[in-house]
Simulated assay, not measured.
Amino acid sequence: MKKLEMKFLDQENKTVTLSLDDPKEPVDPVQVNQAMDAVLAENCFFSSNGDLVAKKEARIVERNVEDIVL
């Protein structure tokens, strides 16, 4: 399973992560950047440390799970 993680900084300079499952691929960096700008402009999310104030990074994370037979 892949996730798009968008990381922001809040008012106390702490990292806040917003994750989206199964992003459309290939991921368009311009669209991700625009989406992150929109999150900041709309001020629609906040953390326990206040509003989100800056973009930190964005990345695709892939998790592989392999069951172990017991």
Rank of each mutant, 00 (worst) to 15 (best):
K14G: 00
V32M: 05
L52V: 03
S19H: 08
N33V: 12
Q11V: 04
T15A: 11
F46C: 00
G50A: 00
N43A: 05
P23K: 03
L40T: 02
F46I: 06
A41P: 04
P29C: 08
D21A: 10
M36W: 01
E5Y: 09
L9H: 00
L4W: 05
C44G: 11
K7Q: 11
N43R: 09
L9R: 06
Q34N: 15
A35G: 07
V32L: 14
D28T: 14
D22T: 12
D22Q: 13
K55F: 04
V39W: 11
L4S: 08
P26W: 06
V53H: 01
K24G: 02
L20E: 10
E12M: 09
P29G: 10
Q11M: 06
K14T: 03
Q31G: 03
C44D: 11
Q34V: 06
L4V: 10
N49L: 01
V27M: 10
N33T: 12
L20F: 15
P26D: 12
S47K: 08
N33M: 09
A54Y: 04
D22S: 15
T17C: 13
N49W: 05
A41R: 12
K56M: 09
S19G: 05
T17R: 03
N49M: 03
V30Q: 14
M6R: 02
D51V: 02
T15W: 04
A35S: 09
D21C: 07
M36G: 02
V39K: 06
E5G: 10
K14I: 04
A54P: 00
M36T: 07
P23N: 04
V30P: 00
E57M: 14
L9V: 00
K24A: 15
V32T: 08
V53Q: 02
N33D: 11
F46Y: 02
D37L: 09
K7F: 05
G50F: 02
A41H: 12
V27C: 02
K56H: 07
V53W: 06
V30S: 11
Q31M: 15
F45S: 08
D22E: 13
S47A: 12
K56N: 12
T15V: 14
S19C: 14
E57N: 11
V16K: 01
L20T: 14
M6H: 05
M6W: 05
G50D: 01
C44Q: 11
M6A: 11
A41C: 01
A54L: 01
L18T: 04
V32G: 14
N43T: 03
V39T: 10
F45L: 15
K56C: 05
V39Q: 07
K7N: 10
T15L: 08
K56I: 06
K56G: 01
L20C: 13
K14C: 05
L20H: 14
G50W: 00
L18G: 04
D51L: 08
L4G: 06
D10W: 05
F45C: 07
F45D: 01
D28E: 11
P26Y: 10
E25Q: 15
F8Y: 11
K55H: 02
E57G: 04
G50V: 04
D21L: 07
L40P: 00
M6L: 13
A38P: 00
E5M: 13
Q34W: 09
K14F: 08
V30C: 04
D21R: 13
F45W: 10
E57S: 14
D22C: 07
L4H: 04
M6P: 00
